[in-house]
Write a protein that binds this DNA or RNA. Structure first.
Lengths: 125, 125
DNA sequence: ATTCATGCAAATTATTTGCAGCTTC
DNA sequence: GAAGCTGCAAATAATTTGCATGAAT
């Protein structure tokens, strides 16, 4: 993977951010006025393939964040759409989140990704 | 809320399904050849507002499912993209899912929605 | 030098909206 | 009969792609 100025800029932005960012947010955050949005998308794909970052679909658009040692989840305010980072403490739920983060939980979503039985035994993998 | 043929058709489809469906999948599943996709979207919005169904963004598109007594989450196969329903047993994780569902978990995502402190205390709510 | 990355513009896809006509209550 | 739906077509918005040029190894 070639380390171009664009890629460096994008990586810098991602390293600084504590919350997931959309491609557009990332583009603006770099301050690189000549960089194109498609470059951002392509770079994010590449970083993703390299396992450097992860993409989640939130609010109907893609959000990207650096993969760090301790993974975390996010709380999203239904009104202002701000995102707040929370550690992956499975026990830290509903009431606990309210106490610890002063965030009133209305609902949550969890999706588990992986490979199903069929696909694991499928030889044309 | 008026109960039109279109709304009945859509509700029937959602009732039959055990997994979330996209607007397009729902349209085709109704078999109603004269119904328009915008009607599906509008109806799903309405149902959502009524609290009848929930929308999740998966795989970058919206998926809708009926709200049932026991809520559940979904496992998504990274290869075939099939979805599998799993109960919300917070303790039923990684290894357990593998044992119980023969699904190899690679990663998961959890998002908690609600209202942040700022917004709860904001009078122009 | 060669390979890969970039900018630009055009294509795709999911979703939303305006509007005029048609149903349901 | 009125308010609320619907279909259709056109508008948005996010993301992807083709292609010719430019930069990194």
């Amino acid at each position: 993977m070639r380390m171009t100025k664009q890629r460096k800029d994008i990586l810098t932005v991602l390293k600084k951010s504590t919350i997931p960012m959309s491609a557009d947010m990332i583009l603006h955050a770099t301050g690189n006025k000549s960089m194109n949005l498609s470059t951002v998308y392509r770079t994010l794909d590449t970083f993703s393939d390299e396992g450097l970052i992860s993409r989640s679909t939130l609010d109907n658009t893609g959000y990207y964040h650096l993969n760090r040692e301790h993974h975390c989840h996010y709380m999203i305010c239904l009104k202002c759409h701000k995102m707040f980072e929370i550690d992956c403490h499975i026990d830290l739920f509903e009431n606990n989140i309210h106490e610890h983060h002063d965030f009133l939980v209305t609902h949550h979503e969890m999706t588990v990704y992986g490979y199903c039985s069929d696909c694991r035994h499928d030889t044309n993998a």
